[in-house]
Design a protein around this nucleic acid. Structure first.
Length: 437
DNA sequence: TCTGGGGTCCTAGGACCC
DNA sequence: TCTGGGGTCCTAGGACCC
């Protein structure tokens, strides 16, 4: 599988407290203050280093966080802004190599192998230059991990944060792994870690030292891949995805408090259908299969799927299918806490040709209607229009848990304010918003 | 981690075919 | 009617990630 014969130089850049740092970069008044994002979920999804210093970590409830630190600045997550920062980080990485993988919104891999001569710098200094440019141009910091495989680069990047740089060479391997538990390795989750523990393998070093025979007996393909990677043998290449095709689109939403009201639960489901379809249309995609998901109060989650008679991304067409699935799944007197809609088996909407049996006039009408709907939503926000059956989820305060339940038209789109320059900005990084919206 | 939301990939097992 | 072997496709569900 891997036929490279010289050691690779794989770099991972990992944003430091990324969401919180973006907020601080956009609004300098927040610099030096404890800032968290996640207001919309009532849970800390990112905490600035100032907040971490006060013991506030990802996942704690805002209520706990506030109690611990009354002066805490709590912000709703603004993914659009973070995505813009993210894009610009990747652009800076691409100044040095085209082999960049946008792994997540705040992490990117780059393969620097063989680029030292081109840049007249060693790998360390190439990395340092990237970090410097990111800091200067965007006002945020990233930590770097440099090693011979992606898995080792991940391990390296975690060693020193924020704004850190850590390299793990082939020679350093045993020491680099000695203080690490198996469960801390990328792609080894809780259940695999537990399995390995049962066989006496507790640390990353023990795992790396196990024989292929032993590892092959305990784990399947993905586990063996990780074992190769932490031994310095590359299995995962840096994958330059050009417009990586989306495999699925889903919308899932918890409502508080849980409800046993059938029409309310159904309306929640329809709202998800609306939003999932809108997203699919934005991506110019149609689904061939749809799955609905109901989560009971005990967190057991049930899914039911249906193949569509023709590919679609239109609630008008899909609501009857969803209703049918819902009736099959829904149990009376059971409390539900969340619903979801997944659109899978996606195809481009340009490829789709109506079959002989389709009613082309009707399809034209539906397409026309949704073009209008999408324009309205683009202009006035996503709650301006929705399926009638989803209505009670938007307007009914009966079961609402405040922030959680739709109707947040009040807060004007923050990005628009930023565009108008109403929010203070540093000598930033502009043009931050060129070509978007 | 008493529990958000959005994804990807892998595997086991059944159906169906030769 | 019983037996065998092997391939492919599909689905449900698990595990993991940020």
């Amino acid at each position: 599988m891997f036929n490279q014969s010289w050691p690779r130089a794989i770099l991972l850049l990992d944003g430091d407290a990324f969401f919180a740092s973006c907020e601080q970069a956009v609004d300098p008044a927040l610099l030096g203050k404890p800032v968290v994002t996640g207001k919309e979920r009532n849970i800390v999804s990112a905490a600035s280093y100032e907040a971490r210093a006060l013991g506030i970590t990802r996942g704690v409830t805002l209520w706990d966080a506030k109690k611990r630190c009354p002066q805490l600045v709590v912000l709703p997550s603004d993914y659009e802004t973070y995505s813009i920062f993210s894009k610009r980080v990747f652009e800076i990485m691409r100044r040095y190599t085209p082999t960049v993988e946008e792994y997540s919104i705040d992490e990117g891999f780059a393969d620097l192998t063989g680029l030292r001569r081109l840049h007249h710098l060693n790998y360390r200094d190439i990395t340092k230059k990237m970090q410097l440019e990111i800091h200067k141009e965007l006002g945020i910091t990233v930590s770097a991990g440099l090693s011979i495989t992606k898995t080792l680069a991940k391990i390296a990047a975690k060693k020193q944060k924020p704004a850190g740089f850590t390299a793990i060479s082939g020679r350093d391997l045993p020491t680099a792994l000695s203080d690490l538990l198996v469960g801390d390795i990328w792609n080894i989750g809780p259940s695999t870690a537990e399995l390995l523990n049962r066989f006496g393998i507790k640390t990353a070093e023990q795992f790396a030292g196990a024989s292929l025979e032993q590892v092959g007996k305990i784990l399947t393909k993905p586990g063996v891949a990780v074992w190769n990677e932490i031994n310095g043998r590359m299995v995962y290449p840096v994958a330059v995805q050009q417009g990586a095709p989306v495999q699925s689109i889903s919308k899932m939403k918890t409502f508080t408090p849980p409800s046993n009201n059938k029409s309310y639960v159904y309306s929640q489901l329809m709202k998800n259908l609306d939003n999932a379809c809108a997203k699919a249309r934005r991506h110019l995609l149609l689904a061939k299969k749809i799955i609905i998901v109901l989560r009971k109060n005990d967190f057991r989650t049930y899914g039911l799927e249906a193949k569509l008679s023709r590919p679609s991304a239109f609630p008008l067409e899909l609501s009857s299918v969803v209703e049918e699935l819902f009736m099959k799944t829904y149990e009376k007197d059971i409390f539900y806490r969340a619903t979801g809609v997944l659109l899978v088996d996606l195809m481009g909407n340009t490829v789709f040709q109506p079959s002989l049996f389709d009613d082309t006039v009707k399809i034209e009408k539906i397409l026309f209607a949704y073009r209008a709907i999408d324009e309205l939503r683009e202009k006035y926000g996503k709650y301006v229009i929705c399926q009638g059956s989803a209505l009670s989820s938007v307007v009914s305060p009966a079961h609402s848990g405040g922030e959680n339940s739709g109707g947040r038209c009040a807060e004007p789109d923050r990005k628009k304010r930023l565009l108008k320059g109403e929010t203070k900005r540093r000598h930033l990084p502009l043009p931050l918003f060129r070509g978007t919206v």
